[in-house]
């Protein structure tokens, strides 16, 4: 495994114009290197700009200053190498599950037979193949996120960004999907960067945890998690790390 970062965020700043015309800083001088095949979680209070990092790094938004490099080249627009999974409402409601998963290859011009065959494989990876003819509104929230993950993977990206992918799910489904995501990650060797506001989720999933503070969004600390997997919440180290993170994120600190 090479140690050259696959994603390199250099001096990234972003400000938004308010209605009165002032510049409101959202991100301030973010520097972050992501190793290939690593699992990084970004945690922070709401409004710290953690989702904005992913939007800029995937090419959906422009940086005000600084840049994001993917394998050494600046990211200028969205591309198939970098996938992004949203919190919810991201599936195309007029397409079946199968066609949703095949959407990326369809945009790339892959013929129908091939892309449907491949889509089945990716649906099998998230145990959703039996729902291939269903429509998004017929699925539960957890099922929709499974399909959204399969759809991102079907584009065969190197890097998978996830913007609070389990944020709208109930606690039980959430834990289930975290486990499924870990096994997918181990199976596919993708580089994953997951934004969450859940400390528990970050400790359960991540190799590296980026702690952010708000107004303006800055990186407060980067922790390497050296607990072996599978992790259990009953573990003492799990509790201590969670406690430390919660303390770092408590309002009097940030």
């Amino acid at each position: 495994m090479s140690d050259t970062p696959i994603i390199d965020i250099q001096g990234l700043s972003k400000s938004f114009a308010t209605k009165s015309g002032d510049q409101l800083p959202a991100l301030d001088d973010i520097n972050l290197s992501i190793r290939p095949r690593s699992f990084t979680c970004i945690v922070g209070p709401s409004g710290c700009g953690k989702s904005t990092i992913l939007r800029i790094a995937s090419g959906l938004e422009k940086a005000s200053q600084g840049q994001v490099l993917y394998k050494g080249d600046p990211v200028a627009k969205p591309g198939a190498d970098i996938g992004l999974v949203f919190q919810e409402y991201s599936l195309f409601p007029w397409l079946s599950v199968l066609d949703n998963v095949a959407a990326g290859p369809e945009f790339a011009g892959v013929d129908k037979q091939t892309r449907h065959r491949d889509a089945i494989d990716f649906l099998n990876m998230v145990n959703m193949a039996e729902f291939k003819d269903a429509f998004p509104h017929e699925l539960s929230g957890g099922m929709r996120q499974r399909v959204a993950i399969a759809r991102a993977l079907a584009n065969e990206p190197d890097v998978l960004f996830m913007d609070e992918p389990f944020g709208a799910l109930d606690a039980h489904t959430r834990i289930l999907l975290q486990q499924e995501l870990l096994s997918l990650w181990e199976m596919t060797h993708k580089t994953v960067v997951l934004v969450t506001h859940s400390v528990d989720e970050a400790v359960f999933l991540a190799d590296e945890i980026v702690i952010m503070s708000a107004r303006p969004g800055r990186i407060q600390n980067v922790l390497t998690v050296d607990m072996s997997r599978p992790r259990t919440r009953a573990d003492k180290a799990f509790g201590e790390l969670s406690e430390f993170l919660l303390h770092s994120l408590s309002p009097d600190r940030v």
């Binding site: 090419g59 959407a103 991102a152």
Partner: peptide
């Protein structure tokens, strides 16, 4: 049209 749908399509490579 929900903006997330447009973002999703762009990230998936839609021109």
């Amino acid at each position: 049209v929900n903006a997330t749908l447009l973002d999703s399509a762009r990230v998936l490579g839609a021109g």
